[in-house]
Amino acid sequence: MEAIDLIFWILALVTCGSAVVVALSPKLIHSVFALFFALLGVAGLYAALGADFLAAAQVIVYIGGILVLLIFGVMLTNRIGQSHLPNELTHGVSGSILAALVLVAVLRFAGAWRDSGDPAWARTYRSDEVSQLAKTERIPAVKNTTMTLGVHLLTTYVVPFEVASVVLLVAMIGAASIARKEVD
């Protein structure tokens, strides 16, 4: 077992454990704080896969932005401490079957059984293997993902990028105009 395996298992444990707390905790605020650790674990997994920019963006957007907004919402809610979330399991069997089906589908499309043996993304490579593979271009070199991402965002994918920013801007202006007090 290499060091990266150990790191992966720790991160996976943190992520899944926190996710279970998010789903099952009777207190809303506990769910929110557990979500923090789950998102952090996901960011760690990204980083372990070499997607460092994605990991940082994940932390900034999901923890620095969305999670904080969630906490803010919870805090501004009156008497949130007394409210009790009904966490009963409903549609247990059908839900489990659906979830299992989705998992199988995702794994299938991700190529889990496409070839014999593990798919490229599910294996951990030793450093000499990585350089070997990078030469034969079976896996892309993960060096400097930031630059690649930036170049792609502003050349190949510039239209979706701009559309997304316009959508966000519209949402922001809309929120501001809704929140604004009428001034005579």
Partner: peptide, 10 residues
């Protein structure tokens, strides 16, 4: 890191 400053912010 390639993303040093971003890492600090995150």
């Amino acid at each position: 890191l390639d993303i040093g400053v971003l890492y600090v912010a995150s």
